[in-house]
Design a protein around this nucleic acid. Structure first.
Lengths: 238, 238
DNA sequence: CGGGGTCTTGAAACGGCTCAACAAGAGTGG
DNA sequence: CCACTCTTGTTGAGCCGTTTCAAGACCCCG
């Protein structure tokens, strides 16, 4: 059965043999409501995932409850890999909206490398791509001011939504994050996030209401954030 | 010829065929002085590296010069992978001390996956491991206070040095970072980094002089930093 | 002897945090 | 249909952690 996500045109094509392997590799497809935990911090789950629809996020928490969101996941994102190489998950993953995920048994990951080196290469590719996003997030939380941080996040999520055809003609898209999520992703307090968001909105750079975001002035946002634009190259999908 | 680093006991053993492939894969071994650039930001280098000896670091800069150090590299670390999947390097790498690196042609990376899936798996492993460190750094810069940040960094570098037998019996090891490096790694200003380092030293938690660091009270540092200890499992070496 | 890099310290300014209160909407149960 | 609570967003006031500016010490090296 063909995967509808694959047809959106922003993923690399694969031949039938590989497709069949992926299909067989997948143990199930799951639907989960918003707020559900996909990977529990410290747990020893033996599964890896591809997000098929919806949004999710990866996070870590300190023992006193402070939370840092590491990155957001959109359709096509592959996750759960790292726990494979450690004694357990060093982070948690939570659904931001209702999500559909393809579930794979981590134990068979090594089979994948042996049977289809191409897929192994693709896994590495996706992993490296996620690492790049982390690099950017680290630069952001470490060295950008609050207003720059928010601007970067808005553009970044916009670009990512665009890849999977989630953005409409008016630069609008569903924005399922609460301000608390934004704060936790950027290393800011909730209150200051609110003020900063408000300030950007008053400058006319974006509009955010009822879970919907519209980028009003992407160029100004990019300039404000010192954002370097990368072309939207096709990426693997597993 | 046997790699001395491999014998230190903290790397996974590999069989002779794989070893021979790695040997053939390596295009050269280079020595570079401290301060030298191994990968230039924005460049299109076609090489990946394994650090054989010395320290290096990976960083990103904003157009106005603000710099964020993403992570530090110690012997055994594999880097340069990400640029393979983008149009160029999205970060820079600089030698912190004199370094020796094994250089591999990135163009042959795909050969590696095909010829030895085991090595492909190992590359992913190393990539996932680096990502874990980035996760931790992101949590640190996003959610920890200055004193917690410094404490985390000290423990983390200590543990990493320990893995490659760089720590002596008195918990001392060569510490080639300037305070500016520490500041750039933690998202702090130089002045505040100085004060914080000083404060920790006065508390008797560590000692730092003449490029040499001694952990005086690792337990207190861990507690202060809310640091979760992971066992020192063996990792692949390429 | 001069100059550049690193470390150190003081003083003042400021960005972001905390505390606190309130509004609006959604869901729940009587 | 109305209280009630819970979640999310909003705004003010004051404080504090960190930054910035500035200056001096020390050391190595040409």
């Amino acid at each position: 059965m063909a995967c509808p996500l694959r047809k959106c045109g922003n993923f690399l094509p694969v031949d039938d043999a590989v497709l069949a392997f992926i299909d067989d590799f997948r143990s199930e497809t799951q639907m989960l409501p918003a707020g559900e935990t996909l990977i529990r911090e410290q747990s020893k789950a033996q599964r890896v995932f591809t997000l098929f629809s919806g949004w999710a996020f990866r996070y870590k928490t300190l023992s006193d409850g402070r939370r840092q969101i590491l990155n957001f996941m959109l359709p096509g994102d592959f996750f759960g890999l790292q726990q494979q190489f450690t004694d357990g998950a060093t982070y948690g993953v939570e659904a931001l909206t209702e999500v559909a995920v393809c579930v794979f048994p981590a134990a068979r990951l090594w089979d994948l490398y042996r049977a289809h080196p191409q897929l192994g290469y693709d896994v590495t590719w996706l992993s490296a791509r996620e690492e790049q996003m982390l690099d950017e997030n680290l630069l952001t939380t470490g060295r950008r001011s609050a207003i720059e941080r928010v601007a970067v996040l808005l553009i970044h999520l916009f670009k990512r939504a665009q890849r999977v055809n989630l953005v409409d003609a008016d630069n609008g898209f569903a924005f399922p994050l609460t301000q608390q999520h934004v704060a936790d992703a950027l290393g800011l307090s909730l209150v200051h996030t609110n003020r900063t968001l408000r300030r950007l909105q008053q400058l006319g750079l974006h509009e955010l209401a009822d879970g919907r975001m519209v980028l009003r002035n992407a160029k100004a946002l990019k300039q404000l954030a010192d954002y370097v634009d990368h072309p939207l190259n096709a990426v693997p999908l597993i």
